[in-house]
Write a protein that binds this DNA or RNA. Structure first.
Lengths: 336, 336
DNA sequence: GTGAAAGCGCTAACAC
DNA sequence: GTGTTAGCGCTTTCAC
């Protein structure tokens, strides 16, 4: 524990603790001479104010929480990167929590955070059913900003991407490249984010005169192994000639499954995925991706939170939509 | 801010705050009947104790800090994943900081954390020169555990991998596959972690009767673009037939550079890299990696920190070495 | 088995 | 421009 406190510092300077406190917070009441003395001595003694005393007194923590389904994920780690950079610029601290897509864990994090431990929360929801009542309760106590994995039914500020359009355009691209039977690998199904991607897929098919085939839509099931069998069986049985995957974790298994089934991407099966893989270009074949601006989403979400801190605009409903990028590569291209 | 506090709770129950506090902390002094009443009422009123009051009083924070060079990195995001899981199991909170390899930023984080904001620190050092004095000061105040990016000169608990052996074996493997001119892409050079990898490379060459050629060793230089030019120029000028890269961020540019230079991996250039890329197998060609047990390193490091919390063993010097895995794939294989 | 009182270190209201 | 005082909400002696 830090040993030297404000009283000792004051004693050393022949000042009161109040004056020292004010000097360190650069209060207008304090003479610049005194300020200089205080700052010098603080540096000399390596004084660091006790954050808990300060937080307790001021009812603010200079800390924000980030809740994500998983950290070891190309999208989320980039988003956290953006958040951390913004927070650091403002001398805020960042607490991190992962839900593993489990809404019970999510619930308990939110519960624990409602104690005032943080000044605000940035959350990307788990894909299980969300406890809306509890989320509402929390967001009445402190500002919450949602990013990427959002739910339209929950009021609040949301940073999302153009999920519907992105999915729509991806399917359109598959069709233009000759696909006749396009499968959809669904995830995030309980979330608006997931619904919009699905709707984009469905509408693109419909508008191109494709029939609705529920068998062509499968939903992810958790573990890596389960996802692999799921995808493999799907490809083996349905023999789609195109696939849009709503998450990276369902697209990669397609590569392995195709190898196993002796199918060639893109000749036998064209593939597009929502993905933030850094080196999609180096895959064999290179993967056509819908690349979300993950870092920017983090920056934007954190920026909004700090705006809320300053304006005290607690209760409002707003959605900011950033654009994703369809990067066309070999995996979706028609053979010559 | 949380509104209901322990006094209100006590009032509601016709008990003193002290009793409520003790009941909630499951003190042996309190009758089980009272405990039950208190817990029920706390749940009913959604009471969450104020963490700052509690931390201030107890001089502990139930929080740990993780300092890494970067979050958006396959190795570190996995390590953080491991750390977070261990912390969550113990109801600890995890603060996250990224240094961007800048030791000035690292310094300031350590400074800020020495105030008692956290009970302990897990750190993977930035590759710039470290301020050993300051690091020592911090680790006298609170427990610090180093992982992966460590420095032998600094006392403390360290979790590392078998860097020397891994590099040695990788070079041996390259030689066995016919490489005559093996380059080394160096990073982390101011750290023991980097030195060991380099030494493994050097010794493997020496023991195989290869001459020492300083021109075959290059050091990373920061941005993605800089690294690319560096690597491209190196390959173009030196024309190595084998490369060991000490970090993933220097290996990926080799793929792009070879494409650009119309060289084929592995025919013209065999490549091995320290890497935690999830899908190295899907690259074109698949990448031979030295895969570090990143998740386990995180788990181990966090586990040690909690052991230190319990035993109050503050000052000691111990290094735990986990094994990395050389996974041989196409990028390093001799043509038939 | 429970309560009263003090105090963790800081800051804000109120003096002067 | 600086000092005094009170109190943030909790836990921990010390009483009984």
């Amino acid at each position: 524990m830090g040993e030297i406190n404000i009283k000792m510092l004051a004693l050393e300077l022949n000042l009161s603790a109040a004056t020292v406190s004010r000097a360190l917070r650069d209060s207008y009441e304090i003479s610049s001479e005194t300020k200089a003395r205080v700052i010098e001595m603080a540096k000399k003694l390596n004084y660091e104010p006790n954050p808990f005393a300060s937080s307790l007194r001021q009812q603010k923590s200079k800390t924000i929480a980030v809740i994500v389904p998983a950290i070891a994920n190309n999208f989320f780690s980039l988003a956290i990167n953006g958040i951390e950079e913004v927070a650091r610029a403002r001398d805020y601290h960042v607490l991190i929590y992962q839900t593993h897509e489990n809404s019970e864990i999510e619930r308990s994090f939110l519960m624990r955070l409602s104690s005032g431990r943080v000044d605000g929360i940035l959350i990307s929801l788990a894909s299980e059913e969300v406890d809306k009542r509890q989320l509402k309760e929390v967001s009445e106590k402190l500002p919450v900003v949602f990013f990427d994995r959002v739910h339209d039914d929950i009021e609040g500020v949301k940073i999302t991407t153009d999920d519907y359009t992105s999915a729509y355009n991806a399917v359109q691209h598959l069709i233009e490249n000759g696909c006749k039977k396009i499968g959809y690998l669904m995830a995030l199904n309980s979330l608006s984010t997931g619904e919009k991607r699905l709707q984009g897929y469905l509408d693109a098919l419909k508008n191109n005169g494709f029939p609705y085939q529920p068998d062509l839509i499968i939903t992810n099931s958790g573990t890596v192994e389960q996802n692999y069998s799921l995808v493999r069986n799907f490809i083996a049985e349905q023999k789609p000639d195109g696939i849009l995957s709503s998450i990276e974790d369902l697209a990669m298994p397609c590569y392995y499954a195709c190898k196993d089934l002796k199918l060639t991407i893109p000749d036998d099966l064209k593939l597009i995925s929502f993905s933030n893989l850094a080196h999609a270009e180096l895959l064999n074949p290179s993967l056509t991706t819908i690349n979300q601006p993950a870092f920017e989403i983090g920056v934007e979400a954190a920026g909004i939170l700090f705006k809320i801190f300053n304006n005290r605009r607690y209760a409002f409903n707003e959605t900011i939509t950033l654009k994703s990028n369809l990067i066309k590569r070999e995996s979706s291209m028609r053979a010559e």
